[in-house]
Design a protein around this nucleic acid. Structure first.
Lengths: 151, 151
DNA sequence: CTTATTTCAGTGTTACTGACATCA
DNA sequence: CTGATGTCAGTATCACTGAAATAA
């Protein structure tokens, strides 16, 4: 039994930013998914609620742009949120192609609950970093993401 | 038409480390996947080759542990790599349950090619950061991943 | 005519689960 | 018996593609 290096990926991967971020993202996604599941919610639901809370009533296409969920997936997510009474979907009288999606009071309450839940997740995720390092990490990641969006 | 904030996710997401990393990972994964595809390779192939190069001949279970690819997926990946002549699979005479996987000379050459290709990807990914910032980011991500692995 | 929106059906990748046979 | 290994079949999630209907 050579059982060496159980937790040591190859050196070239350990210093490769894309690999580090993918690995962390996998773990973070799992953690986020588990926590949201305890509140009977999935990632997409949170994103849509957050976009509606911040940008106000929007068409589904706007929701898609505002939260990064693919527009063909917004359909099903909104349908589910409507079923839970967290958002309203009503036809836009000014443009009959569109639906206007609005977050309900219940939806806002749910969003606050999820905010708290996800704040805990961030704390766990970044537990090994000092507050200053966390800010620095978020700052650097923000720059990387911004650059990525422009490419 | 409210078409505001086309590229501006909700504030709470913009400063949430888990969201930032997920978003970047999605883009990085796509870029890595595209580049590897130009060399007729997928992520898993690279990971397995890198693990074999660094840790030497290994059983499939060891490969799985060393590169983070699920052991039930290693089977197919190794089969494909064998088909391309990049690795050898031979039964371990000392333990007849096991196969010993060894990277071939051709496999090492392919790995060098992929290393160069992925180095380019990292440069593009982190183009907006200075060398010092890149090191800092990798350092912080390494700490986060290490903590995640211990949880 | 072209473009935007909504909707649906389906795809490809990744990570994973469960089951099973083999063997130490 | 137990535990590790290799194998296979199948699942869940996500981002996405393509196409169609409707309407600006």
């Amino acid at each position: 039994m050579d059982r060496m290096a159980d937790e040591s990926p190859p050196t070239r991967l350990r210093t490769m930013a894309s690999w580090l971020m993918t690995q962390i993202a996998v773990g973070a996604d799992r953690l986020v998914g588990e926590r949201l599941a305890t509140a009977d919610t999935r990632r997409h639901h949170y994103r849509v609620l957050a976009a509606l809370d911040e940008f106000g009533p929007s068409s589904q296409a706007e929701v898609a742009r505002n939260c990064g969920v693919h527009s063909s997936d917004v359909v099903a997510v909104v349908t589910e949120l409507v079923g839970k009474g967290l958002v309203d979907r009503s036809p836009d009288p000014a443009d009959r192609r569109r639906n206007t999606i609005t977050i309900t009071a219940v939806g806002v309450g749910k969003l606050r609950e999820l905010d708290a839940l996800l704040a805990d997740v961030q704390d766990e995720l970044l537990a090994s970093l000092s507050p200053g390092e966390r800010d620095e990490l978020v700052r650097l990641l923000g720059r990387v993401l911004e650059h990525q969006r422009r490419s």
